[in-house]
């Protein structure tokens, strides 16, 4: 939530564009900048190997030209970003790198949930997996009231009906649907 109109109101000073764009320098930001710069250095070391440059070929047709432009740009901007960090090293603000990295790690748990869901849909089927996952995640997130489980199941059903049954997006029927009775099977594969 935005804090009490600190920019336009109470301080009554002129509004500046920088007020919205400038982020406070934190040690997490510095580490992020250094890591991305190192990635750019690694990519640059692969120029010529991973992106080819041929002799006697005009510059505009060189396969590696635009990869090189991207990487060199990352190196230049990244280098000056680190220089800028250096000049602001005394004004570093929270969050620190460790506390921020822990939040990133917490998010990694949901990457696993997402990938598990991705793996299970083609096996179990879109509708059962979606409803099952939403119910399970509702429980994982700490909601215990029956209303939340009801909303989770309803959301799952609506998602499947809108996207697969109505909009016909390309999501394959679950392998387990093959074991359903003949009459239901084709319907389940096409719409659920």
């Amino acid at each position: 939530m935005i804090q009490e109109n600190e920019i336009g109101g109470k301080s009554n000073r002129a509004l500046k564009v920088d007020d919205y764009f400038v982020s406070p320098y934190s040690s997490a930001l510095v580490w992020f900048g250094i890591c991305t710069f190192l990635v750019a250095v690694f990519l640059a070391s692969q120029l010529g190997v991973q992106a080819k440059f041929f002799d006697n070929m005009p510059l505009e047709k060189q396969p590696g030209l635009w990869s090189a432009i991207g990487i060199i740009g990352m190196l230049i901007f990244g280098f000056f970003q680190i220089v800028q960090f250096w000049f602001h090293r005394n004004g570093l603000q929270a969050p620190g790198f460790v506390s921020e990295a822990l939040i990133w790690l917490r998010a990694a748990e949901y990457v696993l949930w997402f990938m598990a869901y991705v793996y299970l849909v083609p096996v179990v089927g879109y509708l059962p997996t979606t409803i099952g996952f939403l119910m399970l995640m509702t429980w994982r997130l700490g909601y215990r009231h029956r209303l939340y489980f009801g909303f989770a199941a309803l959301s799952g059903l609506l998602i499947v009906v809108i996207f697969k049954s109505f909009l016909q997006v390309k999501i394959p029927g679950g392998a387990l649907y093959e074991y359903l009775p003949d009459m239901v099977r084709s319907f389940a594969i096409l719409y659920l």
Partner: peptide
């Protein structure tokens, strides 16, 4: 830097 990352 992010724009150049996108180009890459």
């Amino acid at each position: 830097a992010l724009l150049c990352f996108g180009i890459f």
